[in-house]
Write a protein that binds this DNA or RNA. Structure first.
Lengths: 238, 238
DNA sequence: CGGGCCACTTGATAAATGTCAAGTGTCTGT
DNA sequence: ACAGACACTTGACATTTATCAAGTGGCCCG
């Protein structure tokens, strides 16, 4: 395990406290949670947790980014990217069941670790915390359902087109940089890197220009009419 | 809307009360929930809800079975089957966000409908109920994650093989009947009916015999070594 | 009994996706 | 500056999966 242990500074605590998950809970209970928690700095590409391990800690990404991925039979797929400030593996923590996914840092990252046991203890006594967990889990559940719909209802070209449109909506610009390596994007979208390359070229006729990491949507209307984005799949805020 | 409205009988109430979701909540609050609830009988193949509708009711399947499915761009895919006694669309209900999936009865079914507004109201005052919702949502979330891993990490033949093994484990027998039409199974597994037919024949060399709806696993070891089931994908209880 | 519906199957073919191998370019660290 | 590593691309090819069309068989209903 790499990284340097550090006492939880007040500024970190405040960052965590500001998360919807912790914002409404009782101060006493929040302090109890923080008592056993600590912050670590990790270099890029460090494994944080591995699937099938018991959920010792609830993780909070304070800075950097984390890849959630899964393996089976020698194959590996990227499931999601966690960006600041948010938590991951909440479901495993509250149910005290083994992780279903592994996690590794993508870049230099600061992660807070909160003992799962404390999370479970506090959540049985703090109603506001339990309610916040409900909201968070419902949100997570809906995100995965959307992802499943994306995978089952669309071809890889359509998935890429809609992914680009989501990025366009997020940045508010028709020109942006990819936020992850293409190989990871390919894995996230459920295809091979070779196919992603071809898919990018396959979108050229619909007004997508690619220069390295930079994406330029030159004909938004055209791309929209091909991709047919749908809030029930592509709107990650609802 | 088909089906006959019916007052909630005490035996139905007890069935619902026995669900883990409602078992620990305060009796007063449970009664408040039941006050606005009612039970309806539905014939087969009736649409209960449609994606994008506001979540008016939390549904509880008391008998029969319900198909959850999703549509996009003229395509449709089966997402899950809900069997008694359990609830569906809990996440939409508690977040008060539109359904991500549609639901239709597969057979004659008895469904209890609990106003979502009451669920949200009660869950803010009943800590035990909030905790039960957490447990339920965490479970649902993990199921969908497993399903995503199944889809992204396995070929259709492997998905079918593992599906059969899960049925084998559930029934405790190497001989069983499929619990749904093959066309729905195909959709659930993310393939076409034609391909499912071919996949069944593709599993013959691994000791799978098919006669109509009846499946016979004649060489469990062989099938296991091909399918390589994994608790982190196939064990729906954990 | 017979007709028609429908799920399922099968074969031929097409499209989508993955694999393998080679090549380009960038970046990094010596 | 240079070597090596590595992400990405490209082309040829294999595999997987979907589509289309036709056929089988069961089942319901007149």
């Amino acid at each position: 395990m790499a990284g340097t242990n550090a006492d939880m500074s007040d500024s970190y605590k405040q960052e965590i406290r500001d998360l919807a998950l912790f914002a409404d809970m009782d101060e006493i209970n929040f302090r109890a949670l923080m008592r056993g928690a600590y912050v670590q700095n990790f270099p890029p590409r460090i494994d944080l947790i591995h699937e099938n391990e018991p959920p010792d800690f609830l993780h909070v990404v304070l800075s950097g980014s984390v890849d959630l991925f899964a393996e089976w039979n020698g194959r590996e797929t990227s499931m999601a990217t966690v960006r600041p400030v948010s938590t991951f593996i909440l479901a495993a923590s509250v149910r005290n069941l083994p992780y279903l996914m592994s996690a590794r840092t993508l870049e230099k990252s600061r992660i807070a670790l909160i003992p799962s046991q404390d999370v479970r203890t506090v959540f049985t006594v703090d109603c506001a915390f339990a309610q916040a967990i409900v909201a968070e889990l419902a949100q997570c559940y809906r995100s995965v359902v959307k992802n499943t719909k994306d995978l089952k209802l669309r071809t890889s070209l359509e998935r890429l087109a809609n992914y680009l449109l989501r990025q366009q909506a997020r940045t508010g610009s028709t020109e942006f940089n990819l936020t992850m390596e293409k190989r990871r994007l390919a894995s996230f979208l459920g295809m091979t890197p070779e196919n992603l390359s071809r898919a990018f070229r396959g979108l050229e006729p619909y007004g997508v220009k690619v220069e390295g990491n930079r994406i330029m949507i030159t004909d938004l209307e055209d791309l929209l009419s091909y991709a047919k984005p749908n809030p029930l799949i592509d709107d990650y805020s609802a």
